[in-house]
Amino acid sequence: MTRADRVGGLRDAYRAKFRTEIALQFAYRGALAIWLLGLLLGPIVYLVVWTTVARSQGGAVAGFSAGDFAAYFTVLMVVNQLTFTWHFYEFEWRVRNGFFSPLLLRPIHPVHNDIAENLSFKLLTFTGVAPVALLLLVAFDASLQPSAWHIIAFVPALMLAMALRFLVEWTIALAAFWLTRVSALNQAYTVALLFLSGQVAPLVLFPPAVQAAASILPFRWMVSFPVETLLGQLSGEAVLVGLGVQIAWIALALVMLRLVWRLGVRRYSAVGA
């Protein structure tokens, strides 16, 4: 098979998968809305907490006014929804019940199945997130006035963040090949993500050591960086460096994913059909 054939085949597979996946997920609109509620509520709660703090401190905390916090957490909510993945909750069940078998029998890598699932989920839920975000921007009087270049830089930053978070979380999910209970690992990761990706507070409000950890590890580049970019908190140079760091992390994550996958799939043994 030539390379062009393989790319064409993959494209057809994606197209088919998107069509079925959107129909499938749309059938469970109620469940989708409930997932969404959980995803939205966290940022809204922290938005309220921090705007309250800013107001009680005479209008601003560490240079963030109440309107800045509102803009920060609203954009964060959107970025979080677009970068979010859930596969590391699902893998244990997949491995334990043998649901990997049909995926392995297909002639394309199972990761493509999950990418298509993930993108369909985001496409459908974004229709719910967008109006909520607009509502929050107005209700909390957010000060969001990005210049043109902030918006232009935001697009690649967001897309790289989506790719990076997906690759990292999918690789973590592969731990299910070795561990029978992954909930503790998942929780440790989620907590680290919560603090180090800027979901509890903007990273600049943390002590320097935490900020350094967030920048050295991939966390900042998965969520916080696109938010900082759109809000215009970064210089042009910092944005370029950030995009470079994102690309470097994506390359590293890709290598890790291939390696861990190759080792892990050997350990997989399914029972039954």
Binding site: V53, Q187, V191, F195, L205
Partner: peptide
């Protein structure tokens, strides 16, 4: 033990969240 670890981490996370907020203020509403 799974529950113990999860509950403890959950509790510490909640306390740390409060501590981050109170690093910037001494009263919340």
């Amino acid at each position: 033990f799974v529950q113990l670890v999860q509950s403890s981490v959950g509790l510490v996370t909640a306390l740390a969240g409060v501590a981050v907020v109170f690093g910037q203020t001494d009263r919340l509403a």
